[in-house]
Design a binder for these strands. Structure first.
Lengths: 226, 226, 226, 226
DNA sequence: CATGAATGAGGCTTCATTCAT
DNA sequence: GATGAATGAAGCCTCATTCAT
């Protein structure tokens, strides 16, 4: 399965790029190096000029692919959620027990990526780190509305919907499945970040899977039937 | 009580400013207009120059008070959490039932501010909007570590700790009180933001207090004794 | 006559293009869309890239035809003056009275084009608008001298000369026929432009042919014998 | 009189600058060097960077004074017309004969500036050259309307109006005084330009004041009573 | 011949900051 | 302590152009 997954090519909504970076060597270089550079210096400090220097091309080359750096972040985020959705579908496909299914899904959403698939030009471990620390910024912008029309959050929404449906499969009467799952997804990001920088906001102990345990407990307790 | 509260002056950690903005007319103008301006144009586009134009002073004046715009955001955030902590302490002080106490606390954390106290120069309604949409950015920065040393997240942590303690008062065996409460605080922000811009990620219905209900249900279910 | 005129093909001096745009579909598309685009966005903002987008070809294709955008403007201007000269010759060919002849010529120079011939790919109405607002820019350049050597102003000069000769036919002693006619041609452009944007510089009344009347009066009064 | 004139300070509409260049040494340097630089390389090639190099300051300094290069051209043009208006008023003030008055005015409008007053930082000879070759560009722009609202053409219009009134003093029945005078002003510019670069469009002979003579003859013949 | 890709150079503008008064 | 002036550095972006296919 793993191999199959990595051979697939993830299609990102055409609106986020001017020229598909996945269709040329340069384009793939732009993507893979964006990830590394954003991780290194943070999205705020990330510029086309610096990226250009990293890939040995002038900024203007990158402008052929993306309108601005915001769009690159969108590209990466969409790619990430698409990839996660794919993994989710495959990981849960043959599980019959609804509880087991949801359990697997939550783990997938919450646990950090630890191994790069090494097949594509995209380093998923680093990308995961970026999504954790930067994705919030991509929707807390004055122009989310604009972007939303662009359909760029479609994948993200669909992913949340998939897991929400698993919740409903367990308790059809639960009123807030989407809220719960989006809280889990974003909360997990935050807790990972806090664990690293503001540990007293969490209760994370070294070597224990506290974040995973907490969110699983939280989800199952929250949705229980009365 | 209200009057008492509004007369109090909130002390913000000295490290975030060069000169206390609360000690001069100019300084207070800087603060009150920062809030309005950030709300208007977003923190990314917020600059000392624009703020200067709004208050009719050159940028250099603002530099007397704050080292950079990041510090202003910190000031506002700290002020906000201090204010919230104050309200929390007063709202829960005489409640005996631990459940009732926690319930009150959660509501306070989760519900949006609807009325400006009109006593101070700070518009709490707008400030609340800013904290919702911008505060995440203030800790998802490469230099949280730095800032943390500055003790600027102290208030925030203390607030989380206070409510975590209320959780432990109900269930002393619950392993993740801090994680739970920080998830609630941040999650509530996110859900409010989503409700406005990406509603399909939430299950919010007009006129209903869905966000409050969801988080209360989530907290109490999660911490229940087995 | 009309039909005859529209079937004729206007030969533009070879020096302004690299490959004659009138010899291929693409080339004609380049010309007709240049006119529309310059009219839309102004010559300053007109670029090969934008033109390329309009005709669905990359910039490089346009480079096959023209060295730079300046040359396109020259092409259009030359085409325009050639076309006007043609119309002038035909309109005045069988008029015997010198006064009547000059009168007809002035009208032709001064009145705006109102109907597109619809035979060629060139929209004369729009082209006339462009020449009015942009042609001045084409000779107020540091390199008019250069362009002049290229013989590109030949047609324009010949047109002015033709009408100047009509002036001399009426008053052989008039000292400044070329000055008078070039003032008429350019002045008419200017007055049309002013009438639209700075009306207080003109004395144009709606529905009246004031510009035509003024220039005819001016010419005939100026050249009268003492 | 000359001395008196040169001591006066010409007030340019505040809307065209951010900070009045006439109030600081740097500002005056910006103005005087703009004139020289535009004359040298043409307005198209004129940039804040190049101007900055000429005055030994970075571009950013110039941005404190002017929003963009277009505004500098406007400033210069307005200054020029104001200066001309002043000269016009003083040159014609005590002339009783209406014909003599108009004659003097036309000469002033039409003859090139030959001597720099040497009192102000502005070189009027060079400025005159610029206005001749560049001013047309300043109203043949997509945004004349915008600029017009800004009242920047006010002086120009007033100047034209003044001379138009002199025309009407001679022949109150003449229908097109403004058209005539604006044609003279712009026509003179054009003829000077043509004389230099496209002489066959004019009938200018070396050493003779043909342009002046032509326009005087044109004006007086055109406005004669029937 | 048309095209797609790439690029260097430069334009325009804003920032954050310093300094002298 | 507030202000006005000035500035260097950098960001973002577009142009005009070339080259290989």
């Amino acid at each position: 399965m793993e191999e199959f997954l990595t051979q697939m090519r993830i299609q990102v909504n055409k609106r986020v790029f001017l020229k598909d970076p996945d269709t040329s060597e340069k384009g793939r270089k732009i993507i893979s190096n964006s990830i590394l550079l954003i991780d290194e210096i943070g999205f705020e400090n990330f510029t086309f000029k610096k990226l250009g220097m990293k890939i040995g091309s002038p900024e203007s080359t990158i402008y052929r692919y993306f309108e601005n750096k915001h769009k690159i972040l969108l590209y990466l985020t969409i790619w990430y959620w698409s990839w996660l959705e794919y993994r989710l579908v495959f990981s849960t496909i043959n599980i019959n027990s609804p509880e087991e299914k949801l359990n697997t899904a939550i783990k997938l959403l919450v646990e950090p990526i630890k191994e790069d698939s090494d097949f594509s030009h995209i380093n998923e471990v680093v990308l995961n780190r970026i999504v954790i620390s930067e994705s919030a910024k991509s929707y807390f912008t004055k122009d989310v509305g604009e972007d939303n029309k662009d359909g760029v959050f479609k994948v993200y929404k669909r992913l949340v919907q998939r897991v929400s449906d698993m919740v409903l499969a367990i308790n059809p009467d639960f009123e807030y499945p989407n809220m719960l799952i989006s809280t889990v997804v974003e909360g997990a990001h935050q807790q990972r970040h806090f664990a690293k920088y503001l540990p007293s906001l969490t209760n994370v102990r070294k070597g224990k899977k506290d974040i995973t345990n907490f969110f699983i407990q939280m989800v199952f307790n929250t949705i229980q039937k009365k």
